[in-house]
Structure formats: C-alpha cells, structure tokens
Write a protein that binds this DNA or RNA. Structure first.
Lengths: 347, 347
DNA sequence: TTGAATAATGTTAACGTACTCATAAGGAAT
DNA sequence: ATTCCTTATGAGTACGTTAACATTATTCAA
C-alpha cells in the first residue's frame, strides 16, 4: 500500500501514526500552531483553534508520548519494581503509589522481576532504567544481595522500600520494628510476661524486624525468650505453629503472630485445644488484613497507613519539592487497633 | 554551570542525559557503532566492542526509552486502566498481566482513574492513549455508561474485561455466569432445591452475572426464587445478610454467597444461630480467596485461573499472533473446588 | 598481484514534539 | 503617516535512536 501524499485530506497511510504535521497540512497551518492547540497554549485565535481541532478529530490525532518525552526529557511516570506484586506489602504499596501518581498526573510503570527469588538491585536498576520512568521505587520484601554496595543511577532518583537504612539511597517503610514494640507494650500493660512469637518466613525483611522488636522488648525487661515457631504467613501455618507450640509449652499467656492471617490460625488452634481467647490466652497480629474476610473480627493488631507509605515513596522518587532530593530514611509508624483479643494475663 | 565540549572524557553537563553521541565521542567511534554495541548486534570487532563498553560504563550510559520508542514506533508496554486497583478482580488480573508481560519483555503501565466512580470508556481511552502503551486493557468492575457506543481507537488495540460482549472490542473475563451454574448444578446434585443467594453490591458486573446464573438455574427447574439479601462483598455484610434472612426464612437448605468473604460471614451466622454447616445448611462461594486467611478452610467454591485471564487479555491487547487481532469474546471457565461445606440436603 | 567476497565501520535520514526566535498583521498612541 | 506595542503565526532546531545504505579494511583464492 502506497502512502498518499498528494492530498492533505486523505487519511494517513497504515503503519504510521497521525502526527502534528499531518494535522497541520489538513488545517492549513504550521505544525507549531497544532502544537499550541494540543497544549492549550494562549495566543491562538479562536478561528484557528477551531479549525485545528476539527482536523485533529477528523484524523484521530493524539500526541505522541515518545515525541513529547524525547523533546522535554521527562516521562511523567514513576517505576515500581517488585519480586511479586501479589504480596501483601507490595500490593498495599501499589495502592498508595497509584493514588499519589494520579494526583500529580503521573502514570505508574510496573515491573515484576524474578518471582520467588531475590533480585539484585543492580539488575533491577538496569531493567527499570530502560523504562519510561522519571524515578523508581523498589519494593523489596527480601533483602537484595547487593544492598550495601548499591549506588543509585545518576539521574534516576531511587527509593527502596526497606527497613534497612541505606547510605546513598532514600529508604521508606512502615516501621516494622516499632509496631512490634507497640504491641509488646500493649501486652505488657495487660500484665503479660510470657509472650510467644509465631514467625513469618525467613527470607522476609518484615519478619526480621518484627521478630527483633519482640525479642528486644522481652530482653529489655529480662523476660524469657522462647525460640519461635515459624510459619509462611498463611492461616494454616499459624494453626500448625500453635499446635506444635502447645505440645510442650503451656506457660505462655499471650501470642504475638507476625501477621494477622497467622494470628487467625493461632486463635483457631487455641480454641480447638480448649483454650479461650482472650480469657486464657491473648493474641495479637500485624497488618489489619482480616476485616474483609472474617466476620466480627476481634483481633487486636497494628494497621499501617499504606496510602501514606505509597505517597511518601512517590514523593521521594519523583520529588516535587527539591528538598526531597536528599537521602533520608522515612519510617512510618503504625497504629494500634484495639479489638477484643487481648485481656489481662491470667495469674 | 557551562557545558564542557572541549574534552570527550569530561562528564556530560547536568540536565542532559548521556547519549550515544557522548559515548561515541569518548570511544572514538561513530554513534551507530555505539548503537550496535548497545543492542548486541553482530559485526562489531571485539576490540571495538570492549572500548565502547568501557566508555558506556564510564559515562553511565543507558539507552533512551523515548529515542528508541520514537524511532521504532513501539513502546513494549501494555496499559492497564482500572477504577480501583485494590479490588479483588483487578488485582488478580494484574498478577496475570504482569506475568505475561514479563515473559514477553513488556512492562505494565498502570492508571487508576476516578476511584469509586464509573468511568466512561471514552475518557479512559483518552487518558491511556497519552501513555507509552502499545495496547490497553480496561479493567471494569462497573459497567461503563458509554459501553455500547464505544469504539476502540485506531492503532490502539483494546481489551475490555467484561462479561458483556462488545461488537467492536475484544472482551475477556472469567465466566461469572457459568460459575454460578456450576455451583448450582453441584448443589442440585446433592438434592438441594431451596437455595438462597446473598448478593454482592449492585454496581458490580460480576454480581449481576452471578445472580443471573443462580436465578436462571432455579427457574429452569421451576424452583422458588426468593429475592436475595444484598451485601458489599465483606464478611460482615454476609453475616448480616444471613441474620436477616433467618428472621423470616427457615426453609432453605443451601446458601450461595456471591463471594467467599460473604460466604464466610454466612457460615458464621448460621453457626451462631445453632445451625450446622454443612449438615443443616450447605454453603458455597466464589473466588477461592479464603485459604490464606482462614485455617482449615472448608468452603466449597469456584476458583478462576487469574493468571490465565491476565495472559489472555495481554495476548489480545498486544497480539503476538496476528490472528488475535480480531474482535472476540473470551470467557474463561472457573473450576469447582469441592471442600466440606456442601452435604446432602436434609429432608 | 589482483579481484572478489566478507567483515567492520561510518553517513544520512526519519521518527514527533516543543522551545526559541523571527516575522507578519493589526491597533493605538504620537 | 510614523512609531511602537501586542497578538498571531511560522521557520528552524534539537532531543536520541535505528534502519538503510555507503564506504573502508581485511581475507583469501586465483
């Protein structure tokens, strides 16, 4: 099929998109004037504006993202790089990022790399830098092997979602350590001294910091630290962990599960063993993820404002305020949600 | 700060990115040769390749997405447009899309528009067409007001996630209607005749089709259709619905909840009213979303292969096989997951 | 030693946009 | 009428890339 150049009113040949030059030819103006109309610039007469608008509609013109980006060096999009987008943390993060992006007229470019495996930040950076993004957020539920050596690419503002601070890169995270301390304080205030922990999977950074909070709180008070059972975040694994625990340990008055799903499993296991919650044993979790799934949810937990976490990460990855260009470590505190799963410790 | 042009080894001025020309100057080759190295083309001597590579590393070069896209007219990215990314359907969809995208070396460009409100497809198309995407998937949990009139933009392959077929646009969805029929068949086979439905929110298209399946199945057999209670997808709303139902209706032997979360609420409500599940009342749901949240999950449900749905949508939005350019309506069947919440109907 | 074939490298053009600057047209003030 | 300003429009350019084509260097056989 030949391109028809003879007549401006003819449709443009297949395979090429409609450019401003095509519109200009049809409207009988310069390409620059089309640009002005497309961007709602002033200094275009009404008559001309209308004519150009009609030509645009007739040809189905839309500005080329590539052309515009090449011209002004920015993409108006933020990158989000994750192992696995279905993980609770990444997902809730995504929600906040997209909300912040929408408010600023940005899109979100998402990339999932190497599911079920750690990724190196270097590899991730290389992949992301080939994408149309002005800044990047790395959502890392696992610790990157090259975390310490990593240096962000010049010209590509980067934010790592991580509890570990980084000397050369801004980090943002919900405060996984402090949330554990908060829960422990809460349990202490109800007289609990024998508090067990049900751990999440080893590879998870969140798990590491939640456990550290539990451990430090006990040790600071000189209380017994019983090595925890480990689950995989699922309710079933929490159930199993509690059952195993009960085989040889009946001294505890409270259980701190590393997330709500496992906490729910713990509660069910305790009840199946004839123990009442909270009268006999108190249980707490983290995330506040149960309410939509379990009716009349009674679990005391910590909720993180995910929207805020996403917004914060966004604002540092694509700073509007130049002050946000500096390397900082932002830790966003969670909020204790008191429900009915904590009572005074039995004597 | 002035740009320093005098010496190829000097770093490039701030504000400009490092281009192939910069690399070429430093390596003492043509810009085209840099391009060849960057793209791993053959016909470059080892010596040259190495020299160019070093220059690239030294300057921190990375190919410009804008330049490349402008040049070859494609973005290698697929757009995903949703009301609210946190909705179960959109989320599970996203998982499949990102997986498919990764396999083909594509990124996913996500855009959330007008949370909590219907969006018109025209508006959505306009927004998406300004983004770096080769094709678009519209994830619509609500029906667009201009669904019928809509015509996809030429040159922007579009896929709507919808149970309603469209004359000019490919639609892909899990078969929400058939899943209901499947569940009803299952209940019928266990001797159930009085089957109630707990509905999801009115605005949801999924709800409409699931309810239609329930209704048609009953009517086809001439069985009683008791107008359903309506929930909002949450477990609590399912609990409430079941409680209200039990105030004036004790004739049913089975409850079909529009999703698993509500089904869980229904089960709890029944038990709180002294009814056994499944001995007295059978309960089924849809989505298979409970397993991670509830230990020892016994709910019989229908599971959709979300990954497949995402893959299918992706393949039609960014067709590799030209045969997929045609307008089709793909409905992906769910799979019955039999657990312990269905038993023979009591006499 | 020449010629032909092959490999390596360079040159040019085009993709679509928006900035800068130049020009033209229209009024208003002198 | 001339000057000066304002407003509308156009011309030229640069952004970074790759395909197509053109050129030069190298190898090998006759």
């Amino acid at each position: 099929m030949m391109r028809s150049e003879d007549n401006g009113t003819k449709a443009v040949a297949a395979g090429r998109t409609v450019s401003m030059v095509d519109v200009a030819r049809l409207a009988g103006v310069s390409q620059q004037t089309v640009s002005r109309v497309a961007n709602n610039m002033p200094n275009v007469s009404e008559k001309t504006r209308k004519r150009v608008q009609e030509a645009m509609d007739q040809l189905g013109f839309r500005v080329s993202y590539a052309g515009r980006s090449l011209r002004d060096g920015r993409y108006h999009s933020v990158g989000f790089c994750v192992n696995d987008i279905t993980e609770f943390g990444n997902l809730s993060m995504l929600d906040g990022i997209t909300a912040a992006a929408r408010d600023r007229g940005y899109a979100v470019t998402l990339m999932e790399i190497s599911k079920n495996q750690n990724f190196s930040l270097e590899e991730a950076t290389r992949a992301m830098s080939a994408l149309p993004v002005d800044g990047v957020i790395f959502g890392m539920s696992r610790l990157a092997p090259d975390f310490e050596e990593f240096t962000p690419l010049a010209g590509l503002p980067s934010v790592i979602v991580s509890m570990y601070a980084h000397p050369r890169c801004t980090t943002v995270d919900s405060d996984q350590y402090r949330c554990a301390l908060t829960l422990m304080e809460h349990l202490f205030s109800y007289g609990h001294r024998e508090i067990r922990y049900v751990a999440g999977p080893e590879f998870s950074v969140d798990e590491v910091f939640r456990q550290a909070g539990w451990r430090d709180a006990l040790q600071e008070r000189g209380l017994a630290v019983v090595e925890p059972m480990r689950g995989d975040w699922s309710a079933n694994s929490g159930y199993e962990a509690a059952c195993q625990m009960l085989e040889h340990d009946h001294d505890f008055t409270a259980v701190f599960a590393a997330n709500d799903q496992m906490a729910n499993g713990v509660i069910c296991a305790l009840r199946d063993h004839g123990l009442r919650v909270p009268e006999d044993v108190s249980v707490v979790g983290v995330d506040d993820s149960l309410v939509d799934y379990v009716p009349n949810c009674q679990l005391t937990t910590v909720r993180f404002d995910m929207s805020e976490r996403g917004r914060t990460a966004f604002e540092h990855a694509v700073p509007e305020d130049p002050a946000n260009n500096q390397v900082v470590a932002v830790r966003i505190p969670g909020k204790l949600i008191e429900r009915g799963s904590v009572a005074r410790a039995r004597a």
